[in-house]
Design a protein around this nucleic acid. Structure first.
Length: 425
RNA sequence: GGAGAGGUUCCCGAGUGGUCAAAGGGAACAGACUGUAAAUCUGUCGGCGGAAGCCUUCGAAGGUUCAAAUCCUUCCCUCCCCA
């Protein structure tokens, strides 16, 4: 019964590797199990790369299993070399602590931390106090350097350089699993595809120290249909924090995904039933835009809530039109409750009347709104015909005048997709 | 500890005294075409300036020179061979 979740994830394509599929299925069927996924506090917010682990945890929690989210306060002190081509900058303990607080509060949005629910544990609790010599004798002796060097994650780094501190990361993560298995009876660790080596190291360690069998699952690395890294946009990573990635930008990120990715993204990032996901993925030509709206709404609602997602949807529709105004395409998503009318939330910049009187050029206005980084860049934008004021192409830079405002507001655009409302007050 | 190679603009990567804000590619941004997609084509791509030009940039700090990313000195870091 409880192993159904495994099939579900498998069908959704969320499982890349599994140490022992039949064995894990039996374990899950035998009753609620404790499992864990680690999140290293390398930034003060999670980004959409962490969304897959989170969603997998949600699937498991819904199926009745008990998640542990490990906050990697200890492991972040060392830095995971897996999947990276060079050493990450070392974080100070203060940064790590601050980042940890940000991430912990975000996780609470997705997982039920009520009694008997998900638990958040910081691995600094045990890693920070380790005695080096004791650790080497008890744990280090179980690791074969020869074997570690054959791990894919290290092999890559052997070409560009790997410091001893990073080389140790695998032992620390393996030790985490060992501790959780011993103290919490946690027998399953999951993680991204680049975590395979670390996870297997933990399983081996536990077999040797506790003679117990444990399991590991990895998720596929997310790339676009072009094989590019997924989750990057003009402003860098797509963050889950509205301060770092405004809700509308977040919505637009999903809305602008590539055609070829739509079915995979719906499958990975939404909880819509699989047959519906498939149906949406089959849509052709412009109809596929409805699937993108649904994707964008669903993921935004998951991260920022229904209200914020609804507003983002309506705002986008007011700018770009609706992909399915007559609601011909069936969906179970709550998006169908949304009409196209209603509150829109344009990104807004407030401009004082005195500033207008003092004189401000269009170029400066674009920079103020964040639609350009430097005057030169905005000038180039104007030259190339990508700058708009109230839907009219700007021919040349000039001073802003009060007549540019209608009812105290105006809209500026960079290209076709980035826009900002300026309100005079 | 000794020998060698190297650190270039967001990334990769040319450049080895002036013609270098620095080839080429990628990413990014804009335009055309479209469906707020992809592919393709075009343009842009350090900052300030209308422009001439000025300022900042080639690991760091000094020095040589009319002139340095390019030469010298010291330092830091990475790779690699030997011990």
């Amino acid at each position: 019964m409880s192993s159904q979740v495994l099939n579900e994830l498998e069908t959704r394509g969320l499982i890349y590797q599994c140490t022992d599929h039949p064995g894990l299925a039996r374990l899950l069927e035998s009753g609620p199990q404790t499992f864990y996924i680690g999140f290293d506090p390398t930034a003060d917010s999670l980004h959409i790369g962490s969304l897959i682990p989170i969603i997998v945890m949600m699937h498991f929690q819904r199926a009745g299993h008990r998640p542990i989210a490990i906050l990697g306060g200890g492991t972040a002190m060392v830095g995971d070399p897996s999947g990276k081509t060079e050493m990450r900058q070392m974080l100070t303990p203060e940064q790590i602590a601050a980042n940890g607080r940000g991430i912990a509060s975000q996780l609470a949005r997705f997982l039920d931390f009520g009694s008997g629910g998900c638990r958040l544990i910081n691995n600094a609790d045990w890693l920070a106090e380790l005695k080096y010599v004791d650790f080497l004798r008890e744990i280090g002796r179980h690791f074969s350097v020869n074997r570690m060097l054959t791990a894919e994650s290290y092999r890559q780094r052997l070409e560009t350089g790997l410091s001893f501190i990073e080389f140790n990361y695998m032992l620390l993560q393996a030790y985490d699993f060992h501790v959780l298995c011993r103290d919490e009876n946690c027998r399953l660790q999951m993680g991204g595809q680049d975590q395979w080596g670390n996870i297997v190291a933990g399983i081996d360690l536990i077999r040797r120290t506790q003679s117990r069998e444990t399991f590991g699952v990895t998720f596929p690395l997310l790339t676009t249909a072009n094989g590019e890294k997924f989750g990057k946009t003009a402003g860098g990573a797509v963050w889950l924090s509205a301060e770092k990635t405004p809700v509308l930008d977040f919505y637009q990120f999903w809305r602008n995904c590539e055609d070829h990715d739509i079915e995979k993204l719906l499958s990975f990032f939404t909880f819509l039933p699989l047959d519906e996901v498939r149906a949406l993925g089959q849509l052709q030509d412009r109809d596929i835009n409805r699937a993108k709206e649904i994707l964008a709404y669903e993921v935004t609602a998951l991260v920022h809530g229904h209200e914020a997602a609804a507003t983002a949807f309506k705002t986008a529709v007011s700018r770009f039109g609706s992909a399915d105004p007559e609601q011909k395409i069936p969906t179970s998503s709550r998006i169908r409750e949304l009409g196209t009318a209603g509150a829109v939330a344009m990104p807004t910049l407030k401009l004082g009347k005195d500033e207008l009187t003092a004189g401000i050029s269009l170029v400066e206005l674009f920079i103020r709104a964040g639609l350009g980084k430097s005057k030169g860049q905005v000038r180039r934008l104007i030259e190339q015909g990508g700058a708009y004021l109230n839907e009219k192409r700007i021919a040349a830079d000039r001073q802003l005048v009060e007549a540019d405002f209608k009812d105290g507001r105006l809209v500026i655009k960079s290209g076709k997709k980035r826009f900002y409302q300026v309100v005079l007050r």
